[in-house]
Amino acid sequence: MTSPAPDPTTNVAVELAQLRGEINTGLESIKGTLNILVERTTRTDADLRQLKTDMEKELDELRTEVNELKKGRWPLAQIGALATVAGVVAAVIALFLN
């Protein structure tokens, strides 16, 4: 006895079902990967916003410190001018006393 020949319609249906399953599995894998990328992007955006806020705060503090240092510095140009005038006065006095 010989076995009956397989039905080609059944084989096509089975292959289509397997192909559908593989496509669904592949699509789910892609969706999962995309979800991970979206989550990482969201997290990176939040980190960048926080970093920007922190940097602006630090810059404001540094600007405040620089302005305070500028207020407390000695006026070197004026002190130099006064020293020059004092030297000229001392030289004139020395000339008249001799």
Rank of each mutant, 00 (worst) to 15 (best):
T10A: 14
N11P: 01
L16G: 05
K71N: 06
G32Y: 02
L76Y: 09
T25R: 15
A83N: 05
P75G: 12
R73K: 12
T84S: 14
K71R: 13
T64I: 05
E61S: 09
A46K: 02
G26R: 13
V88G: 02
S29P: 01
M55F: 07
E15T: 06
D54A: 09
P4F: 04
M55H: 05
N67A: 15
R20C: 03
A17N: 09
T53D: 09
S3Y: 08
D45F: 01
L62T: 02
K70V: 08
I36Q: 07
I93G: 01
E15S: 13
L59E: 04
I79Q: 14
K31E: 10
L27E: 13
L34M: 08
M1H: 12
V85Q: 00
T53P: 00
N67H: 12
A77P: 00
I23Q: 09
T25Q: 13
D7Y: 04
L95E: 01
T42V: 02
W74A: 15
E56A: 15
E65V: 09
A86G: 07
D7W: 03
G80A: 15
I30T: 08
L76N: 09
S3N: 11
L59D: 03
V66N: 10
G80N: 14
R73S: 07
D47F: 02
A77G: 08
L59R: 08
L95C: 03
P8S: 10
V12Y: 06
F96A: 04
L16S: 11
N35R: 13
K57Y: 11
T42N: 03
L27S: 07
N98V: 10
A17C: 03
E58M: 07
R73D: 04
